[in-house]
Structures are given as structure tokens and as C-alpha cells.
Amino acid sequence: MIFPGATVRVTNVDDTYYRFEGLVQRVSDGKAAVLFENGNWDKLVTFRLSELEAVK
């Protein structure tokens, strides 16, 4: 189960963010908004829950 605050990895091989890890900001309607941070940039991207896996 994916909840806000969880760290997730993108599993969709066709996505630009494949294998990126980010922090879930919100979850609704089968989608999750994931925040990616890297140095001087932040990006908030929405994914279907089926495209994400929780990082242990």
C-alpha cells in the first residue's frame, strides 16, 4: 500500500522517470503525486498507482 510520505520507485519502463525514486505527496483516484528532488530542482509528477512500487 502506498501512502503520503512513502518513498516510491517508478516501475513503468516506458516512462521518462523509470527507476527514479521520490516522495509521495498525495494519493487519490488511483493516482499518486510524487515529488522528485535533485540538487537545485524539484518536480511533482502524477503516476497511476500501478506504475509505482514502495521502496523498502
Rank of each mutant, 00 (worst) to 15 (best):
A32T: 01
N12L: 08
T46A: 06
R48G: 12
T16H: 12
K31G: 06
R9P: 00
V10E: 00
F3Q: 10
R19L: 14
K31M: 14
G5N: 03
V8N: 01
L23H: 07
A33K: 07
T46H: 10
V24T: 02
F3L: 09
L35R: 09
S28L: 10
V34I: 07
T7Y: 12
Q25F: 10
R48S: 13
V13C: 09
V8F: 00
G30S: 06
T11C: 10
G30D: 08
V45E: 07
G22E: 01
Q25W: 11
L44S: 07
N12R: 09
D42Q: 15
D14Q: 10
T11F: 04
S28V: 10
V24S: 00
P4Y: 05
D29V: 05
G22H: 01
T7A: 08
Q25R: 08
M1W: 10
E51C: 05
A54H: 09
V8D: 01
A33I: 14
W41L: 10
D42I: 15
E53Q: 08
P4T: 07
N38E: 11
K31S: 10
A33M: 13
V34Q: 01
L23T: 14
K43S: 11
R9D: 01
D29M: 08
T46P: 03
L49F: 09
A32M: 02
E37V: 14
V10W: 01
L52Y: 01
N38A: 10
A54V: 15
V34F: 01
W41I: 11
D15E: 05
K31Q: 09
V10F: 01
K56H: 12
T16K: 14
I2L: 06
F47T: 03
V55C: 06
G22S: 01
F3G: 08
L52V: 05
V13D: 05
V55T: 07
A54Y: 13
K31T: 11
Q25A: 09
Y18Q: 02
P4F: 05
V13G: 06
R19Q: 14
T7R: 15
A54F: 13
F47E: 02
R26K: 11
S28C: 14
E21R: 07
N40H: 11
E37K: 14
L35W: 11
G30F: 05
T46L: 12
D14K: 12
D42A: 15
M1V: 10
D15P: 02
V55P: 03
V27Q: 02
M1E: 12
V55L: 07
D14C: 13
A54P: 12
I2Q: 01
S50V: 08
A33H: 12
Y17G: 02
G30T: 05
E37P: 10
T11N: 07
E53C: 08
K31F: 15
L52F: 01
D29L: 07
Q25V: 15
A6C: 13
N12P: 04
V34S: 02
N38S: 11
K56S: 13
G5E: 02
L49S: 04
L23I: 15
V13W: 06
V27C: 06
F3I: 11
E53A: 07
T11V: 13
T16W: 09
V24D: 00
F20I: 07
S50K: 05
L52A: 00
G22V: 03
L23F: 07
T16I: 14
V34C: 03
V45I: 09
F47G: 02
V34W: 02
G5K: 03
R26I: 12
S50N: 10
